[in-house]
């Protein structure tokens, strides 16, 4: 077998991810996290009637971030992630998990060079891409607006 034949051979014998069961699990868990967010939204509206939607949304996000960080610290979130895959990575709870897990992992190297230097190791690229895409969208929106 040459290199090319070997690459094709390996592709043939490598087991594939079970896409349908993965998608279903991601849908269910991801959906449940969003449902929890909606539930919190309704609760905060009930408890804090004087707050507007922007303030309530910030409270909902912070609550989800807080609980995901606690579950990460307790060693539970990675088990949810093992089951749900993208379903628990994509919501804001996954973002919280990626930062908390990295912060915990590198704590042993000290606060500055360990935790602070490494806590955005996984989330960093997401933030960079998010900001860059937002800028491009904003630019597009502006350019289109000039002609309308």
């Amino acid at each position: 077998m040459n290199k090319q034949e070997y690459a094709e051979y390996i592709k043939k014998i490598t087991p594939k991810s079970k896409i349908w069961s993965s998608l279903c699990r991601a849908f269910i868990v991801g959906g449940l996290i969003c449902l929890l967010g909606e539930g919190l939204n309704a609760l905060y509206h009930m408890w804090l009637p004087s707050y507007d939607q922007t303030q309530i949304s910030a409270l909902v996000s912070s609550t989800l971030i807080f609980f995901a960080a606690v579950l990460t610290g307790l060693g539970i979130y990675d088990k949810i992630g093992y089951f749900a895959g993208g379903g628990s990575i994509v919501p804001i709870t996954g973002f919280s998990n990626s930062i908390t897990s990295a912060a915990m992992e590198f704590r042993k190297e000290g606060i500055i060079f360990g935790t602070c230097a490494n806590m955005f190791k996984i989330a960093g690229p997401v933030i960079v891409v998010g900001v860059a895409v937002a800028m491009l969208c904003g630019l597009g929106y502006f350019v289109v607006g000039l002609f309308l």
């Binding site: 087991p15 949810i80 992630g81 093992y82 990295a102 992992e105």
Partner: peptide, 13 residues
Amino acid sequence: RTPLEFGNQRPPT
């Protein structure tokens, strides 16, 4: 790889 508590899935390989 990734931090121990990071909630990702391992690929089948």
